[in-house]
């Protein structure tokens, strides 16, 4: 268990949130021009890093807003939280 700092509500328990998987995956502009493999790559393939990962989270049992989180999956430390549409912080890779 860990705490997440919702950009709208402040610090709340993880149990109020639901994880939305990897962040910053962009839908291809012309899906019809992609091969099946390329489409599958976009649709299904996700990173599963031990270390720093960019994720989407939803404050499901609070304000119900989506936002982004930079989390170290090896120790659940949250390094940064930023709103949807904002650029990811540059100091993590």
């Amino acid at each position: 268990m860990f705490l997440i700092n919702c950009p709208f509500c402040g610090e709340r328990d993880q149990s109020e949130f639901s994880s939305g998987g990897e962040a910053h995956i962009v839908r291809p502009k012309q899906p019809t021009e992609l091969s099946d493999d390329e489409w599958a790559e976009y649709l299904f393939m996700r990173k599963n890093i031990k270390g720093i990962q960019f994720e989407r989270w939803n404050h499901a049992h609070g304000c119900r807003k989506w936002f982004n989180v930079v989390r170290d999956t090896s120790n659940d430390k949250i390094l940064s939280v930023y709103k949807m549409g904002e650029k990811p912080p540059v100091n993590y890779k």
Partner: peptide, 9 residues
């Protein structure tokens, strides 16, 4: 606030 009480919204 909105939160959970006994797992209920």
């Amino acid at each position: 606030t909105q939160t959970l009480v006994n797992h209920i919204d």
